[in-house]
Nucleic acid binder design. Structure first.
Length: 263
DNA sequence: ATGGTTGGTTACCAA
């Protein structure tokens, strides 16, 4: 089973890249974030022609939006309105083997890492606090479950190109890292990417559009994540960040992340 | 210290 998370930064602008990725990597499921299309504008027909017979979408005009593209039947589909907002940041569904998928787009949080003056940062912190309570309230971690998506936080020193220079940059501030770690610890999630690729190595999934040459400067951050519950721990056979896709023509600023699970 | 780019929507907002 091959499961992918990808912040695509507009599904309509990147439709040909979904097709290319599908041909080159044969995923079973792709969880998309930042689709930036209301449901009536979602290119459902094109996606289905790629072989994704089961598609769940939750979109809004211009901003945010998540989708699950699947070649297997999806059941028990739903979402939660985080911090009381209906801003299309979460979708969940269950695969035929019983594995529950959660697809998240956590708020980016703006530029100023001070919740007193920046409402977007306050919203991000509230969202994270709610996530830390929500999973233990509703689930047990002895069921197979995967949480993936753009969490907009790079928690470890080697998740950013320069730890010290980014301590006051939103996505790597101590308060965000502390809250993300609390979500993991409260429920017992396993960081599948770091189980496969050692925390001693730099690992990024996002590179700014503003860099003159993203690959040469390589000032990346690991903003996208794949977490699994303990029953799936030993079934994670591989993780890959598909760097190629960041270098395709008119790319998203995020690379897709592939999770391979053995049966 | 500052500005750099992109997508969606149409004079900026969010990332």
């Amino acid at each position: 089973m091959r499961i992918v998370t990808w912040n695509i930064n507009s599904v309509r602008a990147r439709l040909h890249q979904v097709a290319r990725f599908n041909e080159e990597h044969s995923p079973d499921v792709i969880c998309l974030q930042e689709t930036k299309a209301q449901d009536s504008d979602f290119p459902l027909k094109d996606i289905k022609e790629m072989g994704f017979d089961h598609v769940e979408i939750l979109g809004q005009k211009s901003y945010n939006g998540v989708a699950i593209l699947s070649k297997h039947k999806l059941t028990d589909v739903g979402s939660h309105e985080w911090v009381g907002k209906s801003d299309c940041r979460h979708l969940f569904a269950t695969l035929p083997n019983g594995t529950i998928l959660h697809n998240f787009y956590v708020p980016a949080g703006g530029d100023e890492p001070n919740p007193d003056v920046n409402d977007k940062f306050a919203h991000k912190l509230d969202f994270l606090d709610e996530m830390a309570k929500w999973f233990p309230d509703l689930y047990s971690n002895d069921q197979p479950m995967i949480l993936m998506g753009d969490l907009n936080i790079a928690p470890l020193e080697n998740d950013v190109w320069n730890h010290k220079q980014l301590l006051k940059i939103v996505s790597h501030t101590p308060i965000e890292v502390e809250k993300l770690t609390a979500i993991i610890d409260n429920f017992g999630w396993i960081d599948a990417m770091r189980q496969i690729i050692s925390s001693d190595e730099k690992l990024y999934t996002w590179w700014s559009y503003r860099a003159r040459d993203w690959l040469t400067s390589n000032k990346g951050r690991r903003l996208d994540h794949m977490w699994v519950t303990p029953p799936l721990k030993d079934k994670v056979s591989d993780i890959k960040v598909v760097l190629d896709a960041r270098g395709w023509e008119k790319p998203s600023d995020h690379a897709p992340v592939i999770l391979d699970l053995s049966d």
